[in-house]
Nucleic acid binder design. Structure first.
Lengths: 346, 346
DNA sequence: CCGGTCTACTGTATCGGTAAAGACGAGAGG
DNA sequence: CCTCTCGTCTTTACCGATACAGTAGACCGG
């Protein structure tokens, strides 16, 4: 490998005695030249240590970088720790890889809340984002195609989300269907829901779903407030809930992680699940299947969510003038495991 | 916002009546022009809807893209599901953000095992990678700075890793120090370790660490084989281990996830932890603190790992001819929680 | 009044490719 | 034999910036 200066398309062209464009074609459009010449070019390239067209230059010339941004304005470490978010990111990455693209993580620094990407990209996936309007200003000005996921839909932009309201309804119906009437709900603080319209759109919708079922039955749920991604305070809330004199016989939780805290609290209080207490999680994340007992929960198809988001974005990238932006709402599904049963006889 | 054609540096320059270069400076090197002119330029830009220099063009001109690749050749979803990997990715992203850069995830498609990034980047972090030599060929030819993390060090490349051998030793010493003599080990299949020199460098080193302690004491550990990221078979292995007539009084596990399966198996067999059985995890991942009982485990500083990896890479990017590549080995630390105690009296 | 040093801009030459249309010889069809 | 079409390259014209080396006027001491 000769290591004298940068090896460019031109140097290969000179070596073989053809035009630069022909070398470009040899790499990018094999059908544009005879295979004999192509082979000569390729082996000359090999010999010179040329490693294919420079992606940066290609990006400028083609107007395509081959990567899309994934915007997450919450603390990334916290978000990734959430099993579901991790799976989503993975799904997005997989699907993009299939299209020869890659995903670039866009997270704010601690100091500065707004992400202003200095990085080239073809489009933007908005996944978990506090105040989209501020955050997205730069992207819109730049004319970047945008797709939002699990966000309150934004006018003119495609949006992919899950039917959380119906999902919550399924959980509540399951519990009431088993005969439960004293029902607890472990969720996040109400004010947090109102403050931010990002992740907690989700929380808000689940709320609505639970009430859709409980209200008509005249059931007033016993509320408890956990903290997103914080184990200790959530455990405390769960325990307090179970120590009430009017202890619920069933608990609906905002997430599987919350549900696990309820399981722990129950164990610590000597309550059997599901004999004494039924617990319903949400998300069907990894812990749901491996907890003791395995959790009844609500599942969503994260992989499909990722796939659809990428598909929508790619469409928007390839054909900016295309059809009106989609609004996809994915279904949620009840997964019954062993954490729920009819309430104990009084 | 006038939406007629692309707004480029030139158009702003024409509008204000200065050279293109001056506009460029207005954005990238404010000290190169009078602030009066700069303000005029900025407001003209605003007016025209110019959103700052095009990152792709800038990347070509500057020779810097502002993003680095993170290579992970395992199934990304599986890797991210591993809490520790997720935290590492987050740490890397955070640290890069602090430097105005971003991370691009590089994962192989299912079909084709080799990642050949068509995406521009300034350097490469190699995190979890089966056969680095094949995988890295393109990157090396392209002259990309590379840093490996938790990999067998590669000649000439900086490497960041954790002292897994010592970590494992700490766990083993803890157990033997408490008086345990019948010790089980729950790890992955030995052949898997030998097959691949990526993640399982880790497993291999932990192995060595355990034996460093057990061998001199003449303790022959009872081996059980779990499966990475698979709950059911790991549970089965754990259970089989605990059902042996010569049931161990303490178990050393390859990971916290493995340890949790041991806890479950113990519970299901009516064994109390730590009275009847001590369990040591590894990694101090989220589950370690929230499991019942909380796990004694080995902690590593993932955030530091990410930070150091980024620092090393950035150094290599900025100064390719710099000092000899570093070999950083981070310490591991024993975290004692409630899953370990002296063995029960015989 | 002149050289010297600043400050504030401008000019020119890339950066390393790609798209689209042009040129040119060869075989096909009339 | 002449034109037409094809398959193969080549030409020309960008893509949208930045680096670096000027250059012109301002200020300054002698």
């Amino acid at each position: 490998m000769s290591w004298m200066g940068k090896v460019t398309l031109q140097s290969v062209a000179d070596r073989v005695g053809v035009s630069r464009m022909t070398v470009s074609n040899a790499f990018s459009r094999p059908d544009q030249l005879s295979s004999a010449l192509r082979d000569r070019i390729l082996s000359a390239a090999e010999e010179l240590g040329y490693s294919g067209p420079d992606p940066a230059a290609r990006a400028l010339a083609r107007g395509r970088t081959g990567s899309v941004g994934l915007l997450i304005t919450d603390r990334l470490s916290a978000v990734i720790a959430d099993a579901l978010a991790g799976e989503f990111i993975a799904a997005v990455s997989d699907e993009l890889a299939r299209q020869g693209m890659a995903v670039t993580l866009l997270a704010p620094t601690e100091t500065d809340g707004v992400v202003e990407a200095e990085v080239a990209m073809d489009g933007l996936l908005v996944y978990i984002c506090g105040s989209p309007d501020d955050q997205l200003a730069w992207a819109r000005r730049r004319g970047l195609p945008i797709v939002t996921i699990d966000q309150r839909p934004i006018d003119g932009l495609p949006s992919i989300k899950v039917d959380d309201r119906t999902g919550a309804r399924l959980g509540a119906e399951h519990l009431t269907g088993l005969g439960h009437r004293r029902i607890g709900i472990l969720t996040v603080a109400q004010e947090e829901i109102e403050d931010r319209d990002d992740v907690h759109v989700t929380a808000a919708e689940r709320h609505l779903g639970w009430h859709d079922v409980l209200d008509p039955l005249g059931i007033e749920p016993l509320m408890a407030e956990g903290v997103y991604l914080a184990s200790a305070p959530t455990y405390a809330a769960a325990r307090a809930l179970l120590e009430r004199p009017d202890r619920p016989t069933g608990v609906l939780c905002l997430s599987d992680a919350f549900a696990v805290e309820v399981l722990h609290a129950a164990t610590d209080l000597g309550l059997g699940v599901p004999e004494d207490l039924s617990v319903v999680g949400y998300d069907d994340s990894r812990v749901a299947a491996t907890s003791r007992p395995p959790l009844t929960t609500i599942r969503q198809d994260v992989v499909a969510k990722g796939r659809l988001a990428v598909a929508a974005l790619v469409r928007a990238i390839n054909d900016p003038e295309s059809a009106p932006p989609e609004r996809v709402v994915l279904p949620a599904e009840l997964v019954v495991r062993e954490s729920t049963a009819p309430p104990p006889a009084e």
